[in-house]
């Protein structure tokens, strides 16, 4: 933990203006990812995983606004930099893969050209060499007959192939950080494994830090070195994977692990977490946003959360953690 992290997010808060009021989508989110490390961000739908990624990438919806925090990529604070500065590192230093690869690619541009667009922008590739380099990248992500596939449109490819193209685009400029936002959603299980292996292999080759956003705890357990658990826009727990599964300390993490389906258990034994995410437009949200669903709630819980330091090994944002 001596080297500077590849990406350090500190105290990130994001608010969305909506017709129903201001939604405090993220509050004081902090995490760091080291060079070569795979970090998983897990949490249920609406917990702010994707919003975190979008905020860091600077591609939040116009209604969303970063209200506090910094995101240090090397020496550059992505949240304070100008739009041009951010656009210059996006795709070059930090890249992103999205869910639903079929809609994430431009439907009326050949995949070869879409890869070439990124190469021309970031990789200092001469215009004449770009198509050839695009074919090389397609080969690198395991697409058979890449020269012919470069002239294909996304609608002519399967979902798995589109995701491979997406990976080729993201890794075209050999970024130091890759954010993969549910990269295997909508793909079948065998393809999921292949895509995850591919991301892992390429990340190892480049020495890239990977942030892997998922709601699939089992997948996170297999792939990640460390896990950040999010709930309702808060980071509730951060720990190395093995440690988190062996000794979950936050009650929410424990419930989440208990709620993970496994092959041995049948449907009736499957636990579910009681309650739902609180309405983030409320002005009377408790300091701990899990408090209203928490079986271990106590009086301390209505006091401000224990301030979490940025990166130590096992951090839990709870007054009454499991031991």
């Amino acid at each position: 933990m001596t080297a500077a992290p590849a990406l350090l997010v500190e105290d990130l808060s994001v608010a969305f203006r909506t017709r129903g009021g201001v939604v405090q989508a993220l509050e004081h989110v902090s995490f760091a990812v080291q060079k070569g490390e795979t970090l998983a961000i897990v949490g249920e739908s609406g917990s702010g995983k994707s919003v975190t990624a979008y905020a860091v990438m600077g591609i939040l919806d116009p209604a969303g606004r970063v209200t506090a925090g910094r995101a240090m990529l090397g020496g550059l604070d992505l949240l304070a930099a100008s739009a041009d500065q951010v656009a210059a590192v996006r795709g070059r230093e930090i890249a992103m893969i999205f869910q639903n690869p079929r809609t994430a690619l431009n439907p009326i541009r050949t995949v070869g050209k879409q890869i070439a667009d990124v190469l021309l922008r970031h990789a200092n590739v001469p215009r004449r060499e770009a198509p050839g380099r695009a074919v090389d990248l397609l080969r690198a992500v395991g697409i058979t007959d890449p020269a012919r596939r470069a002239d294909a449109y996304p609608f002519e490819m399967s979902g798995g192939m589109c995701q491979r193209v997406m990976i080729a685009i993201a890794l075209a400029a050999r970024p130091s950080v890759l954010i993969a936002d549910e990269p295997t959603t909508g793909l079948d299980v065998t393809t999921q494994a292949v895509i995850m292996d591919l991301i892992g292999d390429l990340a190892r080759d480049i020495g890239m830090a990977t942030i892997f956003i998922t709601h699939d705890l089992a997948l996170a357990a297999q792939r990640a070195d460390r896990i950040v658990v999010m709930h309702a826009g808060h980071v509730v727990e951060t720990a190395p994977t093995a440690e988190l599964f062996a000794r979950p300390r936050h009650p929410y993490t424990a419930e989440l692990i208990a709620a993970t389906p496994d092959a041995a258990a049948n449907l009736s034994e499957l636990a579910s977490i009681p309650g739902a995410l609180p309405d983030l437009r409320r002005s009377d949200l408790p300091p701990c946003r899990y408090a209203e669903r928490c079986p271990r709630r106590q009086t301390d819980c209505d006091v401000a959360l224990p301030a979490a330091p940025a990166i130590p090994e096992h951090v839990v944002a709870c007054w009454n953690p499991l031991s």
Binding site: M57, I59, D61, V86, A87, A88, V89, R90, G91, R92, A95, M96, F98, N100, T103, A104, L105, N106, P107, I108, R109, D117, V118, R121, H122, M166, I169, A170
Partner: peptide, 27 residues
């Protein structure tokens, strides 16, 4: 402009002219 592939193009850091004209307008 609010579609997924424009978001991808932005996330790839493509110049805003490329995003608006080549990616968005042609569609």
């Amino acid at each position: 402009l609010s579609s997924d592939f424009v978001r991808t193009a932005r996330a790839c850091g493509l110049a805003s002219y490329t995003v608006v004209v080549t990616y968005a307008f042609r569609n």
